[in-house]
Design a binder for these strands. Structure first.
Length: 406
DNA sequence: TCTGGGGTCCTAGGACCC
DNA sequence: TCTGGGGTCCTAGGACCC
């Protein structure tokens, strides 16, 4: 049976949210960045900025060059999370089959609902109206309608902003002729190059290519690639809530020039560890595995992970483990980026208190610190311990588990 | 020329257990 | 004593997405 799938994509997401929140930014070219410095990169550009050729992932200095009037706005993750959750709630009220795809997109399977409406388009209009009423007219979305996720995603991109695009079954072949390989979600530049080497340079060519040869080159992905080339995608819309999705929590930072030595990178690492710990506590999660990542001057990223045999959410402890990993990983002479990622997450069991009094005290301390920092602003209270004062940190003890012996 | 920061999923090999 | 094979966990690295 044929399905009806929507792909709903917020337009210029972070930038629109900021324009909605602050009337002074409306109608002006703005970009949202991590930090409002010229060294950072564009996370989202308003439609006014896009007209000058500015777009996400562009270096901020480059964006400035293209658009001298550009306004840099620092991002506000809490605000976006609130909107994201409410956005998904609106979609979920039309169908429980909602699959979030990042913070500003989602797939919605409305097959069972569509009979109640005159057409898929009229249902989309209802959704758009809800979004506008909830958030304001500066926050809009574009929607793609098709028989599967792959085509719906292509469609939502064809008319932006505030568009509705439907790809009917008899239009699929025509659409596939007009796009390039990397327009398909799942085919990036690496895969495109490998396909080119096989003599495949367009989507229809991919659809006609012998599956056997694709499997030789790409293994199990070969069959999926062939289907992509034909515009087929049997994958279901998998319902999930935004929170359930989280599998890992990590933070990383590109080092400014003057901190690109192993020694000077340590305080940065310490702060990242605190941040990861705070985010874990806020989500009520503990991490069983920690990974340290470093990028060298040639842009090569190396990482090493550790599963210490206990679960952690304390920034100081995370830092201690990071130092332990660093000993084994080694550091390049010129580190350009450092990062910590926590995975193997599990919910913190609030019923079982730690047995050791020291740990109980420690938990209480962190809880109070978090509360104060939330009340009076981040960084109100912080630890004095940092690089050079490792002896103040909790000991990580011995490792005797498999995989820790290298 | 210059490339941020948040993630997910997959593979492949080794260790270990039964 | 020597043997096989399946399942699971761990780690490193690659590709991709927004």
């Amino acid at each position: 049976m044929s399905r009806t799938i929507f792909h709903v994509d917020m337009d210029s997401y972070f930038a629109s949210v900021e324009q909605q929140a602050n009337p002074n930014l409306r109608g002006k070219p703005i970009v949202v960045t991590g930090k409002p410095t010229i060294k950072s990169v564009v996370a989202a550009a308003s439609k006014e900025a896009k007209k000058c050729g500015v777009d996400s992932a562009m270096a901020t200095w480059k964006a400035r060059k293209k658009c001298p009037d550009l306004i840099l706005v620092p991002g506000d993750p809490d605000k976006y999370e609130w909107i994201t959750n409410n956005f998904f709630d609106i979609l979920r009220s039309y169908s429980p089959k909602l699959e979030p795809f990042g913070v500003d997109e989602a797939f919605l399977d409305v097959t069972a609902k569509i009979k109640e409406y005159r057409s898929p388009e009229s249902l989309v209009k209802r959704i758009k109206k809800d979004v506008e009423e909830k958030f304001g007219c500066w926050i809009t979305c574009s929607v793609g309608i098709a028989r599967n996720k792959l085509l719906a995603k292509l469609a939502s991109d064809m008319d932006k902003p505030d568009g509705i695009t439907r790809i009917r079954d008899n239009e699929v072949i025509e659409v596939l002729e007009d796009i390039s390989l990397t327009d398909i979600c799942g085919i990036g530049s690496r895969t495109e190059k490998r396909l080119n080497r096989l003599g495949v340079s367009s989507v229809p060519e991919l659809g006609d290519f012998p599956e056997k040869k694709l499997k030789e080159e790409f293994g199990v992905d070969g069959a999926r690639l062939k289907m992509m080339g034909q515009g087929k995608d049997p994958s279901p819309v998998l319902p999930a809530t935004y929170e359930e999705e989280v599998k890992s929590v990590g933070n990383s930072l590109t080092l400014p020039d003057y901190k690109r030595t192993p020694r000077k990178a340590l305080p940065v690492l310490f702060k990242l560890a605190q941040k990861v710990g705070y985010r874990l506590r806020k989500k009520g999660l503990m991490a069983g595995t920690l990974k340290l990542m470093v990028r060298d001057g040639e842009f090569n990223v190396k990482g090493k992970q550790l599963t210490p045999g206990r679960y952690v959410d304390d920034g100081n402890l995370i830092y201690s483990f990071a130092l332990e990993i660093k000993k084994r990983l080694g550091f390049p002479a010129t580190p350009t980026m450092v990062g910590i990622r926590a995975s193997k997450l599990r919910a913190k069991d609030s019923f079982s208190q730690p047995l050791l009094p020291d740990r109980r005290k420690r938990e209480e301390l962190l809880r109070v610190m978090d509360e104060i920092n939330e009340e009076y602003g981040k960084g109100t209270l912080y630890f004095a311990a940092q690089a050079g004062a490792e002896d103040l940190l909790p000991s990580v003890g011995e490792f005797k588990r498999p995989g820790d012996l290298n």
